[in-house]
Simulated scan of single mutants.
Amino acid sequence: MQKIKTALLSFGMSGKVFHAPFLELHEGFELVGSWERSKQLIRKEYPKTKSYPSLESILEDDEIDLVIVNTPTDTHFDYAKKALLAGKHVLVEKAFTTTVAEAEELASLAKEKKLKLSVFQNRRWDSDFKTVKDVLDKDLLGEITEAEFHFDRYSPSLSIKTHKETPSSGSGILMDLGPHLIDQALFLFGFPEAVFADSRITRDRSVVDDYTDILLYYPRFRVRLKASLFVREAIPSFVIHGKNGSFLKKRGDIQEDALKIGKKPNLKNWGTESRSQEGLLHTESGGKIIHENIPTLQGNYYGFFDELYTSITQNTEEPVTAQDGINTMRIIEGAIKSNKQKQVIQL
């Protein structure tokens, strides 16, 4: 089996939790090492890897096929561009870039260089979202009239990660949790006609937005996307209403929590939610009212990496394309403009 030799640009939480375990699990990838500016930690977890002293040392290494740009958002464009120019395939964490223009430039460069460029929108492979998509794919609700997605937390204290709390083009909840919600909405419903957004600061001493409410306008329905850090008692994270019925689902995916405590993913029972988290389907089919819990599909971020492997080795489409990333950035730019002007922005 062809090996895709891969380097991370950071071995913090993102590299340690979301990338390295799945690169290790997938036999088609080989984690060669990570750029580590000060602490050299990767070899403690993966003894066969190496710590690179600089970005240039990774880009000059002919052994590296794939570079994962998992650094702060405002570095994504610069690092991804340098990696593409060095002839490497690139996987970029969300948010893809800080502007639409940057996203389009990266997409154009990847196409010119005949390289793969993908965005790590791993939440498409969450158990809860996969179940929501399955309900829609089976047309269990009829014509959709409205949907509301939440990514809420109770986190009143400022983050210890300075870059997250310092005003920049890549900071704030719209750039942090917003891309997850936006990508999921676009994946299910396509690109909207217009957007309205309200973003604000709610935490004491915060200087970056930590609340956002985005309304996407489609011809026959609306989709609301909300993220807040002051939700102690969470409501269902996915609420979808159609002309035949409704589906409500809590955010129940267990992968992130399991990875954070050091559990290793597998291909059998990984990402299996508790039955207590099952979503509620209340609809009508064939003249019969259905009011029951729906079994949750299994989540597994391995699916993303498997599709990425196939994309690189067989020249198929990336699991999340650069165009997907561009579209998400178009919504974010529209939301920023809407929040500033307090009006609906046509897209």
Rank of each mutant, 00 (worst) to 15 (best):
E56L: 14
P179A: 08
L297S: 11
K82R: 15
E317W: 07
I214T: 04
T99Q: 05
F22V: 02
F11G: 01
G279C: 00
F22T: 04
S246E: 10
D213R: 08
K268E: 04
L281S: 06
V100Q: 01
S159V: 04
K288L: 12
D78A: 15
V231W: 03
K116I: 13
L140M: 14
F189E: 09
S285Y: 13
Y218S: 03
L158Y: 03
N266S: 15
Q346T: 13
K243N: 06
F238T: 10
L115T: 00
I173M: 01
D183E: 12
T212N: 12
D210T: 12
L91G: 02
K342C: 11
D139I: 03
K337T: 14
A20E: 00
V69P: 03
P72Q: 11
L158F: 12
I160S: 10
L84H: 05
I58Y: 10
I68L: 05
I290K: 03
L216G: 01
N293S: 10
T6N: 04
R43F: 02
D137Q: 06
E45N: 14
I201S: 09
T6I: 04
K114D: 14
E112Y: 02
G303A: 08
L91Y: 04
N70Q: 13
L186H: 04
K111Y: 04
E307Y: 14
T6L: 09
I182K: 00
D183C: 09
D61N: 13
F247P: 01
L297F: 02
K263E: 15
Q343Y: 14
G271P: 06
A258S: 13
G28S: 10
Y218T: 07
D128S: 13
P47K: 02
T6E: 01
L181N: 02
E143C: 03
W125G: 05
L23F: 09
L308D: 00
N293A: 10
G33S: 01
E104V: 00
L106W: 00
P179F: 10
V119T: 07
Y79S: 07
E36L: 02
Q323N: 15
N70S: 08
K250D: 08
I289A: 09
E93R: 06
F305S: 06
G172F: 02
M13R: 15
S10I: 10
R232W: 11
S206D: 12
D257E: 15
K5D: 09
W125S: 08
L59D: 10
A103K: 07
Q2E: 15
A227S: 13
K288V: 14
D65S: 00
L188Q: 12
L259T: 09
V223S: 00
Q323Y: 13
A107V: 07
D62K: 15
